[in-house]
Design a protein around this nucleic acid. Structure first.
Lengths: 202, 202, 202, 202
DNA sequence: CATGAATGAGAATTCATTCAT
DNA sequence: TATGAATGAATTCTCATTCAT
């Protein structure tokens, strides 16, 4: 009996795939990579462990995709801001502020993806992701230098420093959730720091 | 009559302790906490697994010591610089440059200690260590603001951003060892970034 | 669509659970709790160590169940006898005789359960089990005292002494299996001892 | 250089041996065989682990001696009572009462020796010790039967039952130390039980 | 094609025993 | 001779991955 893969079936397949990714994302967000076992992903997604392996050949591959898709999404948002209107300085401030605000809403996820290693494959993907983040900032740095808004500086290092600066500044309040300063003030301080760092004028 | 513990024996004991710490440090530097199993520490240190437990009551305690001793050492060096002579700006530049140069020599370790989580006990120690690093920079920031060298800014956020910025900027070249720019130029770029970020004048 | 768990599968699951319990029971019977490692249970049951942990969350829980289920079974039998017809004395004799005969068939197990401690959790369960045994005998003692068959005496101590007496008398012949007197005579002697101890008249 | 083993040295040797035995006894009394590791024995005795092995070839041998010497001591006391003056019944009551009172003073030790097994060698010794205990009671049983004080009964079984009865009755209060009945009343109840069991008349 | 029970290598930790000093 | 550091096999438990149903 020949099987026809119906549209319905196709849909279910990609729905399952999405469910698995969502479950993995949620688990990492709630408890880090440590809490994200295949068994847990199966439980949260409502599928079996065997089913996970139908959609992803290994745990590494699954989490590399979780990581890259989340980062790609963030990068799209940042890119839209960086490629938008306004001065380079305005765009940089807006991009940093946007990332910081989003990270403060879903804290552990941002931390895990940016800072937490898992196994070597995921680690390799994480490094590529950080580079992707950096690339967005490189563009606005180049634009600012071209227009004379920013002084001459290393684009590579500047971009990495920006990513590192706001990552680190965001990680700490995340870890002591209680008694943190207002998120507004935190975002503002991070943005000011990056602004001064690249601009040199206040 | 109890036998005197000979000086030779004493020396071997502390030598073994140091060997265990060195082995643990090396394993973390090469492959992160993931690669640092007790078995691996035993193999690299040339001792048995049981011997590890004569010197350290648990894996957690061992790695907390690895972490805190490394960080304490770095903090001492930074503190000496920050408490030295010169303008706040000069001292900040010197501190960042010193850390960056040292990190480039023993690369992965710095990252693993700053960014990589392990088990809850080590994680708790790691958070304290990050705070210690930040504290050093807070002092120079306060000094610069008091003397009017630096504009008014958030000391907490600024310190975290500095730590994050140079950590991130150092991690990337470390991970793609080939084709990196000259270390000198890298250090210079990082220092300039932090300098502008806190000072606002060039 | 979730698949139905077939009756066959259901059966295999409870069969495995039973196999694990049986293997644990056998190992305790043959060599005491000392000989009953998880590895040994896995070997004897024909499963892997990991499989044991699908059915029982820890070694303690497994052995607590082995212990309590065996004791509960014995207690049911004794309770049925003690709550049956006849004089208190007849029921006491029947209960002791029944336990003794059963113990002589599966010897070491009864002893290990009554006398041998293991880890704290199992030990706690063991104490509760001894109390359960004692409770059965307390009832018949109270009945006999109420009816005037037995002289006034401590119910608590009497019950404990009965359990201890037949346990000890059964343990020795069990351990030197060769050359033992006839089981019949042994059971008779134990029953007579307990009978005299509580009744005081022959 | 030929060594002369001086009297002083001889004394120290047997003193050390005694210290080791005392340390082992104390540890078993306080925490059972579980707490009695060779390292712990070394610590408590003030000797090194290596020294333990100069006096005892293995842990088993050490604890077999701890066990047998303690039991031998109890047996001597019981034997003196059993071989003393008075009716068989009086001597039996006195012996049981003596053992019970002593056990209540140093409870864990008696329990560990009577009920708790360790490794196979110690276990074998424990069984022999119980037999030794039983032998004492066999003598008084025989004496009582010969004089017509006790009815005809199995000496072997009776002795075992007596040992089991008072052991069990003593073990329980030991384990729930709080809220126990008065020791006096407990001893009395145990003695009465054994008395009735062998004598048949009140 | 989905299921989830089973696998088994590997992790941290313990401890009786040995042997270089 | 006494020491106690070192050994290493054994223990309990975890989890990514497979495969019979």
């Amino acid at each position: 009996m020949a099987y026809q893969r119906s549209a319905l079936m196709q849909e279910r397949l990609s729905e399952n795939r999405a469910r698995i990714l969502a479950a993995a994302r949620q688990l990492v967000a709630e408890g880090g990579f440590r809490a994200a076992s295949i068994t847990a992903v199966a439980r949260v997604s409502g599928l079996s462990t065997g089913a996970i392996y139908r959609y992803f050949p290994s745990k590494s591959v699954l989490f590399v995709e979780v990581l890259t898709s989340a980062v790609a999404h963030e990068c799209e948002i940042l890119t839209a801001i960086v490629d938008g209107d306004g001065s380079a300085r305005e765009r940089l401030r807006a991009a940093v502020a946007s990332f910081a605000r989003r990270a403060l809403k879903g804290p552990h996820l941002a931390f895990a993806f940016i800072a937490e290693p898992a196994d070597p494959d995921v680690e390799a993907a994480r490094i590529l992701c950080r580079r992707d983040f950096g690339d967005v900032f490189k563009r606005v740095l180049r634009a600012g230098m071209a227009s004379g808004e920013f002084p001459k500086q290393s684009v590579d290092v500047g971009a990495a420093c920006i990513v590192g600066a706001f990552t680190e500044a965001l990680v700490r309040p995340v870890e002591h959730a209680g008694g943190r300063r207002s998120d507004q003030a935190l975002v503002r301080a991070i943005v000011d720091f990056c602004d001064r760092a690249v601009g040199g004028t206040d």
